[in-house]
């Protein structure tokens, strides 16, 4: 979870290709799991089970274009969040998945060259509000898009539920 400064530091756990779909991230057979924390047990289960085993808290998953395409299943974003990923960085995201991540308070960062500009194990520093990524291992900047102010507001609140909880608490 990013702090108020919306800056994150961590290592890259895995670099994936284009069109990583939601069935790859979270298989349909587990959609009747509605306890969000338990979704983490099935992250990337069919194609990349090793990522779930390797992922350390705060590490980043990096991918190519159209990450999260396919189903609207929120469990795909929840599985990444509750497996304790720090953020997903991709060349582009499928729109429902992008919103699901932000709504759950997990940063989704658009960076067109990210999959080419880092490798598993590289240490990155992300500035979500400014849209800047520094690959500390290679001492290189990676161009990224700044998050929409609306998304920044939701991430700073910890996601849509805490945001609305606060709004309607009065």
């Amino acid at each position: 979870m990013p702090d108020r400064s919306l800056k994150l530091r961590g290592r890259v756990c895995a670099v994936l290709g284009d069109n990583i779909d939601t069935d790859i991230i979270y298989p349909g057979r587990y959609l009747n799991i509605t306890d969000r924390e338990k979704t983490a047990e099935h992250l990337f289960e069919l194609a990349y089970p090793e990522i779930r085993l390797a992922l350390q808290p705060g590490e980043f998953v990096v991918a190519g274009r159209n990450f999260g395409c396919g189903s609207s299943r929120e469990q795909a974003a929840a599985a990444l969040k509750y497996a304790r990923a720090g953020a997903v960085i991709a060349a582009s995201f499928a729109r429902i998945f992008f919103r699901n991540e932000i709504n759950l308070g997990l940063p989704a960062v658009v960076a067109p060259q990210a999959a080419l500009a880092c490798a598993a194990g590289d240490k990155l520093e992300l500035d979500l509000a400014e849209g800047r990524i520094c690959n500390l291992t290679r001492n290189e900047w990676i161009e990224a898009a700044p998050l929409d102010p609306r998304a920044v507001e939701l991430l700073a609140a910890g996601g849509l539920i805490p945001y609305l909880k606060r709004k309607y608490a009065a």
Binding site: S72, R73, E74, A77, I96, R99, N100, N103, L104, G159, L160, I161, L164, Y168
Partner: peptide
């Protein structure tokens, strides 16, 4: 448009 479940909770609210 398609949305996620938490976003739907927001729609049910607002």
């Amino acid at each position: 448009v398609g949305i996620g479940a938490t976003e739907m909770a927001g729609v049910w609210t607002e």
